[in-house]
Design a protein around this nucleic acid. Structure first.
Length: 394
DNA sequence: TCTGGGGTCCTAGGACCC
DNA sequence: TCTGGGGTCCTAGGACCC
């Protein structure tokens, strides 16, 4: 008989809040809420401790509401650098147990344990050994799901949080899925659930009863297939393979809506710097630029352009962004968010091109590369155009 | 209570080419 | 003179996730 696959999904519990409690022992056992501070306009909760969740606080909740629900909460801004350090420690432990660790985000990963039994014993024992080592070596707790495919492992890890372990045995996948409420169907968010409900589907069983053809007609081929498989505990390969496209973006929500075109473009300048320096840092580049505008009523539009050559400098990105914005922006409307993305990225900076088409950009580019290496050596260095400083000191 | 920021993937329609 | 069907690329919008 063929040996079945074993996958772990490991999730760090209330990650950002747990790191804060670890680094600040006086916060242990208290409601810690990481994200915006209560006084910040237009901010949300990023992560909160289980103590805070008891008050009804959760991720993505406006900070103002969190403050209302939990007036004595400890509100903290995130320290992303620190979280990435801890994340790296944890991921390194995972790699001691399998060569195939697929990190999904800063706080979760899949570990393929297929074929590791001879080395580490049963997968469930490995799961407990991983939990033990993470706790001992980093002070953090994780929740682990174990199953024969990634999709079911992902759902299983959410079953007994925090510090949990849940195994779905070979052959039990379908029954496991059917035992859960519909809102545990990972990959079907609120919009899809609303549509499911409006079609008369309220439980996993309801979806399970529908033939594939019906689901495909109602939801399209892709989502139909996904739903059909998901309620049966079959992995639709959502987590398989490398990502096809890649992009780097930056966006900013403003405390107050913007209408003045000079100020709007000054913000685009700032975003252009952010994005361009990150392109340098990641040593990649692309030809497609997207500008995102969120109006005061929260409606969001995007406009993008694909150009013959990669982005040459931050000024180049700035000019393209301004042109795109002017094409799309309904002048006079209040803007609450602006974003810039460079999409369809490829590795390398194609330096050769600039020798053929150098419109003075080669020089600018050299200057920006030099600035980038200065910033790399001294991270306190903040290089921006004078235009951005004028804004800051208004 | 009024909604962050950084991503990936999918779809539909249009342009363009063969 | 009118027109089919397929492939590819691009764009805008939307859903979803952490």
């Amino acid at each position: 008989m063929m040996k079945k696959n074993s996958f772990l999904h490991v999730d760090l519990d209330a990650f950002f809040a747990s790191v804060e409690q670890l680094d600040n022992p006086q916060y242990k056992g208290k409601p810690v809420i990481v994200g915006g501070l209560p006084g910040d306009r237009r901010s949300v909760v990023s992560t909160c401790s289980y103590e805070a969740r008891r008050y009804g606080v959760h991720s993505a909740m406006p900070t103002a509401k969190a403050k209302q629900l939990c007036p004595n909460g400890i509100f903290l801004r995130g320290r992303m650098k620190r979280y990435h350090e801890k994340s790296y420690e944890v991921m390194s432990i995972f790699r001691d147990f399998s060569p195939d660790v697929q990190q999904m985000s800063v706080d979760e990963a899949f570990i393929d344990l297929t074929g590791t039994e001879k080395l580490f014993g049963l997968p469930e024992n490995t799961a407990f050994e991983i939990k033990r080592r993470v706790k001992k070596e980093t002070g953090l707790t994780v929740s682990v799901g174990l199953a024969t495919n990634r999709y079911v492992a992902k759902i299983a890890s959410g079953i007994s949080k925090p510090d949990g372990f849940f195994q779905v045995k070979d052959g039990d996948e379908e029954a496991f899925m059917l035992s859960l409420p519909l809102d545990k169907l990972w990959g079907a968010g609120s919009k899809t659930r609303q549509r499911l409900n409006s079609c008369g589907f309220y439980t996993m069983k309801d979806v399970h009863n529908a033939p594939l053809s019906t689901l495909s007609t109602l939801f399209g081929t892709h989502t139909g297939n996904f739903l059909y498989n998901a309620v049966r505990g079959i992995d639709s390969d959502l987590f398989e393979g490398e990502a096809k496209s890649h992009s780097i973006s930056a966006e900013q929500t403003f405390p107050f809506d913007l209408t003045d075109i000079y100020i709007i473009e000054t913000e685009l300048l700032e975003l252009s710097y952010d994005v361009f320096f990150r392109l340098l840092k990641e040593n990649c580049n692309g030809k497609t630029v997207q500008v995102k505008i969120r109006y005061d009523d929260f409606s969001t539009v995007t406009v993008s352009g694909t150009y013959p050559r990669n982005i040459a400098t931050s000024d180049d990105l700035f000019e393209k962004s301004c042109a795109l914005l002017r094409k799309k922006y309904e002048f006079g409307r209040g803007i609450r968010l602006l974003g810039i993305a460079v999409q369809n990225l490829e590795n390398g900076m194609d330096d050769a091109q600039y020798e053929l088409f150098d419109f003075g950009e080669g020089k600018k580019k050299a200057v920006e590369k030099a600035l980038y290496s200065m910033q790399k050596k001294d991270s306190s260095l903040y290089v921006r155009k004078a235009r951005n400083f004028i804004k800051k000191h208004d």
